Amino acid sequence: MRPTHLCLAVLVAAVWGVNFTVIEIGLDHFPPLLFSALRFLVAALPAVFFVGRPKVAWKWILGVGLALGVAKFGLLFVGMDAGMPAGLSSLVLQIQAVFTALIAFVVLGERPTRIRLLGMAVALCGVGLAAVDEGTGGPLGAFALVIAAAVCWGVSNVLTRKASPPDSLNFMVWVSTVPVLPLLLLSLLTEGPSADLAALRALDWQGAGVILYVAWVTTVFGFGAWGRLLRRHPASTVAPFSLLVPVFGMSSAALFLGEPVSGLRWCAAALLVGGVALTSLAPASGKAATASPRSARVRLPDAPPRDRAEEPA
């Protein structure tokens, strides 16, 4: 990998990691479901008019849009609004790699190797340790919502794998059109029109900047840059950089939000990141071993699927 591409990969991981801190700031300005709807609205418009027609069937766009946009991000934003810290969210959400592998086994018949099974066990130990740490100072219900978001992310990863989009940016922009109306409807039903209107009327430069960051920087730039890297390099070369996301997430939350990072949480981080690395990067077996080069190139890691993982938020 050339130095410029190396720097780009690290930059994307940093952008996605800092995104959790930006989300935490945004939740001070917007109800969580409205915030998520605005994220996808701004990510889709006006980009949808410039990326061309969808390059995969609409069933995949709708499926990923509902699983990733409505379920995963809706649960993540609600969980963080309920008290899940930004840094811990960036870490715990990485368990999606384990759920992706499990769902791929059930749906696609991709049998995990022993190394991947070991990685899943290590990652689950990390999540358990993080739950113990969170249980001493935060709501476990919010923790559970982020775990549920990781499950939904796993579902969207498998759908994305089935869709095999040839252009990741085109795919994500069209996917971003799907969650807007469902999230707005859920916001009106659960958060109330008065809360939504009050948030929109109180919109200031900080609130607008947060929306632009989570929409254009993390989604449009992040996916576009990651897709470019995956077109030029093997997935096994690019994917490890996504493991830097929780490092940047926890560090930025500690720096900008003053979130404490206990020794127990660092141990949980080491176990979870190590387990995800084994799960995502170990050689595949069964059907996965015969996957075509094309399907390997289009996997993205938040906000994009790596060897079985997508964007961290």
Rank of each mutant, 00 (worst) to 15 (best):
V10D: 04
L257W: 07
V92R: 10
G286Y: 05
V127A: 13
S164T: 14
A13E: 10
L6W: 10
L230S: 07
V42I: 11
V158C: 00
F248M: 09
L76R: 09
V245F: 10
L45N: 10
A144H: 01
V175C: 07
A195C: 04
G128V: 11
R116K: 15
P305F: 10
R53H: 12
A284S: 13
L181P: 00
R111H: 14
G275V: 05
F105G: 11
T290P: 02
R306T: 01
S164W: 00
E310W: 01
V276I: 15
L159A: 03
F35N: 07
T190D: 05
G63Y: 08
P31V: 13
I211D: 11
A208C: 13
L45H: 09
L257K: 11
A104C: 10
L272Q: 03
Y213G: 13
G83R: 03
R265Y: 01
L117M: 15
I115R: 14
V51M: 09
M172L: 15
T290Y: 10
G52K: 12
H5L: 05
I61G: 07
N170H: 04
K287A: 11
V214G: 14
A97T: 13
G69K: 02
D196I: 15
V122E: 12
A202C: 01
R294W: 04
K55N: 03
L129S: 07
S280L: 14
G141N: 05
L118G: 12
A202E: 08
L189Q: 05
V238W: 14
D204A: 12
L181M: 05
G83N: 07
F73E: 08
P139F: 06
G227L: 07
S194T: 14
L124I: 15
F35E: 06
L264S: 08
A131F: 05
R114C: 00
A82R: 12
L229S: 03
L117R: 15
L244N: 04
F35W: 12
L88T: 08
P240A: 14
V18P: 01
P32V: 09
G83I: 00
T290A: 15
G119C: 13
V273M: 11
D196N: 15
G87E: 09
R116A: 09
A284F: 01
G275K: 03
